[in-house]
């Protein structure tokens, strides 16, 4: 009966976007192709992309760029377009949730623009990293990049809820702290949504689990470098699923070995139980893979919900990251094995 009620609320809204997203998921690069891509060089990778879902972007840019630049630009642009398309083709609750999720790219872009300004990077280079998918459009970012100083950039956001964080930056807050504050703000703004409908509940659960993954990665990274508890605690994102603030505090106080042991019982433990001794970047890869698999299988259990959409967005991001690592690795002439290790192949 509960099922019936759920389907009968606004089924068409979900059915449409989920069907589209499912077809889009089918067009992601299949895992077998990564073995082929690993054998190609950078120009061949570009050509492979030209024959895939990235065709439009490569065609648009190839007259001007080649090699790594081409791939870099095309990947960012494609990700932006894919995400914007999701916003365009959805409406109602699905759209609302997608927009909320994608606001992370507003902060990503803002961080990159501020860094670019601070260290005087050429505009083109900053532009290549932007993923224009959140609240602001390309025009806005262009205007932002054209501003003379960081103060001017900050001023644009006066009145926004995250303005205080930006303001602190102007008043000489360290860049690292500023970035972490922004990320924390993003997650907090999401977890403070009240779960009125069942769809919102799924969404929140997803976000909370993502926070868990973020937090455990943060703790492990900082611990490996010998950080103290009070250095770690400010970097913890509140509102986790299992890894809430107090749990994180407890974990942060432990020695690394002890910490690893006490991870048993957390939902993400299965990802790392056999690989504790590997370098952290590898462990992160395992985390990412497990997380993606989890989201995918969950999205099959709840077909008419936001989960298939979220799972697609996640997989798409993973694909773009994989391709970028592949291309850059190939362009730098890294050994195939070293590249393969860094890929998250779901």
């Amino acid at each position: 009966m509960a099922l019936l009620r759920r389907i009968s609320t606004k089924p068409a809204e979900w059915a449409y976007i989920v069907a589209r997203v499912r077809v889009m998921s089918r067009k992601l690069i299949p895992r077998e192709d990564y073995n082929k891509l690993l054998n190609m060089d950078i120009h061949e990778i570009a050509r492979y992309l030209e024959e895939s879902e990235y065709k439009r972007e490569i065609d648009e840019l190839a007259y001007k760029y080649s090699g790594m630049d081409l791939v870099d630009y095309a990947l960012s642009l494609n990700l932006s377009r894919t995400y914007s398309k999701l916003i365009r083709i959805s409406k109602g609750v699905p759209r609302q949730l997608i927009v909320q999720y994608l606001r992370r790219y507003d902060f990503w872009n803002l961080k990159n623009i501020i860094r670019g300004k601070m260290f005087g990077f050429p505009r083109e280079e900053v532009e290549a990293t932007l993923v224009i998918a959140g609240e602001y459009d390309e025009q806005f970012y262009r205007a932002l990049m054209a501003k003379e100083t960081i103060e001017d950039i900050v001023k644009t956001f006066e009145g926004k809820p995250f303005y205080p964080i930006l303001d602190k930056l102007v008043k000489a807050c360290p860049l690292a702290e500023f970035e972490d504050e922004l990320d924390k703000f993003y997650y907090q703004s999401l977890t403070s949504i009240s779960p009125e409908t069942i769809d919102m509940k799924y969404f929140l659960e997803f976000i909370r689990m993502e926070i868990d993954i973020k937090n455990i990665k943060t703790i492990l990274r900082l611990k490996t470098e010998g950080a103290e508890m009070d250095e770690i605690v400010p970097k913890i994102v509140p509102g986790g699923y299992q890894l809430k603030e107090d749990v994180a505090r407890r974990l942060a106080a432990m020695e690394l070995d002890e910490l690893m042991k006490s991870l048993e019982g957390f939902w993400f433990h299965e990802a790392i139980k056999d690989v504790l001794r590997e370098p952290l970047s590898r462990i992160e890869v395992y985390f990412d893979r497990m997380w993606a698999q989890k989201v995918v299988s969950k999205s099959h259990h709840f077909p008419l919900s936001i989960l298939p959409v979220l799972s697609y967005m996640l997989l798409k991001k993973i694909e773009v990251d994989n391709l970028r690592i592949l291309a850059r690795g190939k362009a730098e002439g890294l050994p195939t094995e070293a590249i393969k290790e860094q890929l998250v192949i779901v």
Partner: peptide
């Protein structure tokens, strides 16, 4: 048909093979 139709149109919009 409303939900099925929406889903079918969605799938076809992505890929006419559907």
């Amino acid at each position: 048909e409303q939900a099925i139709g929406a889903a079918a149109v969605g799938a076809m919009a992505e890929d006419p093979e559907f």
